[in-house]
Design a protein around this nucleic acid. Structure first.
Lengths: 195, 195
DNA sequence: GTCTATAGTTTGATAGAC
DNA sequence: GTCTATCAAACTATAGAC
């Protein structure tokens, strides 16, 4: 039984794929491009992964898991609605920041998954949005927010959040936590009544 | 000299391409797919356009023009900053709504333009964002907005706006104008001091 | 685990008949 | 303006030697 280190070959393949898929797009990246980045021949990649589609799935699936694991404990906590939503926004932002190429793939390339993975993925995305939506709904029920519909407000929050991957720089001025908090402030103060 | 009607063959080709590129993506759409949608053979398409890249350019370029034409008169008007930004948001939303497939291509597929078109396009996008940014900056200078940096606030506005193309339905409850106004309200009331 | 060689498709685009 | 026929290149993936 081999012990897998951080420089595990399969991990290297996946990380190189994240960078290329994020930069050029899934379809615009050939297995030859990927092999070249790893200084391999294309055929050698198939020792580590079974297909290009599996590679896309591995990237998107791991990223999805990270998003769920980040917000679930917060969702289940006893925080009040405003604090809970803010913490979820910050947590989501932190997942993006520490998985920058992977989340670009996650957001932009999922449509190229082959079935049945594509449908399963779409379901998970809906489930994730539903968690945010239920917190927003709570805010309406508690009369904390103006009564805009949940779907509209939730999509606006996630849109503002998910766009950050296009401009966030790890070595920029703002830390992920600060970006999340600032975003939450802009969005929430717009939603909260009598502030 | 021929009079071009609405059912001009080239226009038909472009509109079919908008639908397919929007739905499946530029690279995932073959010229054969496009020909099939028009009940033609692939070779016949080249009577009307010179290359697949030109087709992508025509779609993105027309869409860019529409965005500039929609916001420029508002930008140059004498409206106060709050009203101006709201009107620009509504106008932008209306362009998305009446060019739904084209704007999906505009937002998601531009990276697949060949050079030098890709660089020119990136420049136009920056110019467009700069117009919004200058209005946001005015709001900071007038002490109308909290002092978050312009770039951050501007990107958040455009992110919320540009995500609407993923869920907006022409036959849905909300008209584009209502979506724009609601979006502006959420974003601006979050930015305006002492409201 | 990596290589060379290659099978089998699909791609964007062109030539030339009608 | 549309067709048939076709080219040259690129693609994912496999077979089998080392």
């Amino acid at each position: 039984m081999e012990v897998k280190g951080k420089t595990d070959r399969k991990t290297q393949v996946i990380e190189a794929a994240e960078a290329l898929f994020s930069d050029k797009g899934f379809l615009a990246t050939s297995m030859r491009d990927l092999a070249e980045a790893l200084e391999l021949e294309a055929a050698s990649l198939y020792t580590h992964i079974s297909s290009k589609d599996e590679l896309l799935f591995l990237i998107a699936d791991r990223c999805a898991n990270e998003f769920f694991e980040a917000i679930n404990p917060i969702y289940k906590s006893n925080l009040n609605t405003e604090a809970k939503l803010t913490a979820m926004i910050v947590a989501h932002m932190e997942v993006i920041a520490r998985n920058l190429p992977a989340s670009a793939v996650f957001f932009n390339e999922w449509k190229h998954l082959a079935e049945p993975r594509k449908s399963e993925y779409a379901q998970r995305r809906d489930d994730y949005e539903a968690i945010f939506r239920s917190v927003v709904r709570k805010g309406f029920e508690e009369n904390l927010f103006y009564n805009y519909d949940e779907g509209f407000s939730t999509r606006t929050i996630l849109a503002a959040l998910n766009w950050t991957h296009t401009w966030y720089k790890p070595d920029g001025e703002l830390k992920p936590e600060e970006i999340g908090e600032r975003l939450a402030k802009i969005l929430l103060t717009g939603l909260i009544r009598n502030m």
